[in-house]
């Protein structure tokens, strides 16, 4: 039998790449329109500049928001199901506070090398955190959208008034992740092409 050439493993399988980019689109649309919705009745003493919001008035922003929520949710469900079925979630574990601290201090002193296909402890924590924020933002969003019919989500958030704050802070967490994520990609640009092409593990 002919000797088989060892196949190099794909760094990012196609379901991960597809859901990643669809999620990126959904997040930009949801946050951009969400900021415009926020501006109609701000929770805090600031508003988002219209230049960086989506939809020129409240009605448009809500229409975009309630259109793209379907992409966010269904794409998210596909990601969760695929990750559970494929074993992708195993890459986030094991995770210990000690390891997070070790990798965090190493990263701050630029001593943390990028290992292709392996998540360091800080990455694991950030990814788990943003996934959690994603679940929270969907639940609180449903609570705000349908507080009567989906009252259990509203109760889970501590009531309608609290749900708006929960939704806001989940957005802030996701936006913060987004900023750090883009910064890290800018610092280690070689990680970008594999998220488009899939890439191959170095032999």
């Amino acid at each position: 039998m002919a000797e088989k050439k060892p196949r190099r493993r794909v760094i990012h399988p196609w379901p991960l790449r597809l859901t990643h980019w669809l999620n990126a689109l959904a997040i930009v649309m949801m946050i951009g329109s969400g900021w415009q919705i926020y501006d109609a009745s701000p929770l805090f003493a600031f508003t988002f500049p219209p230049l960086i919001t989506i939809g020129q008035w409240l009605g448009a922003a809500i229409a975009w928001h309630l259109a793209f929520m379907w992409l966010l949710v269904f794409n998210g469900l596909v990601y969760f199901i695929w990750s559970a079925a494929s074993g992708h979630f195993a890459k986030f574990f094991p995770l210990s506070p000690r390891a997070v601290w070790r990798d965090f201090t190493a990263a701050l002193t630029f001593k943390l090398p990028h290992q292709t296909g392996v998540y360091n402890a800080v990455q694991k924590l950030l990814y788990l955190g943003v996934l959690f924020a994603g679940v929270v933002i969907v639940i609180s969003g449903l609570a705000i959208w349908k507080p009567v019919q989906l009252w259990f989500f509203c109760d889970l958030c501590g009531g309608y008034v609290a749900a708006r704050y929960v939704h806001f802070f989940a957005m802030a967490a996701i936006a913060g992740f987004f900023a750090v994520h883009l910064l890290l990609v800018a610092m280690v640009p070689k990680v970008l092409p594999p998220m488009i092409t899939g890439g191959r593990m170095e032999p």
Partner: peptide
């Protein structure tokens, strides 16, 4: 008509 106005707003960022 409404959606045109809305879309105009949206498109300014799209």
């Amino acid at each position: 008509m409404l959606f045109r106005a809305m879309a105009l707003g949206a498109v300014s960022t799209l």
